[in-house]
Measured scan of single mutants.
Amino acid sequence: GLEHMADEEKLPPGWEKRMSRSSGRVYYFNHITNASQWERPSG
């Protein structure tokens, strides 16, 4: 619920959580730099 939404908002600017269609794993994508990574971004 609300706790999940608050957790999402802690991601650094530009980052969003996405799911890989090929593997079904969650990864993180930065739409500003077009960077993507499996680890949760910090800072």
Rank of each mutant, 00 (worst) to 15 (best):
R25V: 05
A35Q: 14
H31F: 14
S23N: 11
L2A: 13
P13W: 11
V26K: 03
D7T: 10
R21Y: 10
R21E: 14
A6Q: 12
E3P: 13
G1D: 12
K17N: 02
G24R: 08
A6M: 10
A6E: 13
H31P: 07
E39A: 08
K10Q: 14
A35P: 01
R25G: 03
V26E: 07
G14Y: 06
G14R: 01
G43E: 13
G1P: 12
E3Q: 12
S36L: 14
S22H: 14
L11T: 02
H4E: 13
S36F: 15
G24A: 05
T33H: 04
R40A: 07
G1I: 13
M19L: 14
A6L: 12
G14H: 08
S42D: 10
D7S: 10
E8K: 08
P12I: 01
W38S: 05
R21V: 14
R40C: 10
Y27M: 02
G24M: 05
S22I: 14
Y27K: 01
Y28G: 00
P12G: 04
G43A: 13
R21W: 09
Y28L: 00
G14A: 03
T33V: 03
G1E: 13
P13S: 07
Y27F: 11
S36W: 15
S22A: 12
W15P: 00
P12Y: 02
K10F: 10
W15K: 01
N30G: 00
S22R: 15
K17M: 12
R21S: 14
L2N: 13
E16V: 11
G1L: 13
K17Q: 09
R18M: 06
R40V: 07
E3H: 12
S42K: 10
A35D: 06
M5K: 10
S42M: 10
K10G: 12
R40T: 07
P41L: 02
M19E: 07
I32L: 11
G14T: 01
G24T: 04
G24D: 05
T33I: 04
P13C: 15
W15A: 00
G1Y: 12
S42G: 11
I32W: 07
N30V: 03
M5P: 10
T33E: 04
S23R: 06
Y28W: 05
S42N: 12
F29E: 01
H4P: 14
S23H: 09
Y27Q: 01
P12W: 02
E39M: 07
P41E: 01
D7W: 07
R21M: 15
L2I: 13
Y28Q: 00
F29M: 02
E8W: 03
P12M: 02
E39H: 11
N30D: 02
R21H: 13
G43D: 12
G14I: 01
T33D: 04
E8S: 10
S36H: 10
P41C: 01
E16I: 09
S36Q: 09
F29P: 00
D7N: 11
M5Y: 11
P12T: 01
G1S: 12
R25Q: 06
V26P: 07
M19Q: 09
L11A: 01
L11P: 15
S42L: 09
E3D: 12
E3S: 12
P13F: 13
H31K: 12
P12Q: 02
E16Y: 05
E9P: 08
G14V: 01
P13L: 08
R18A: 03
N30P: 00
L11H: 01
G14F: 06
Y27G: 00
W38G: 03
E9R: 06
G43N: 11
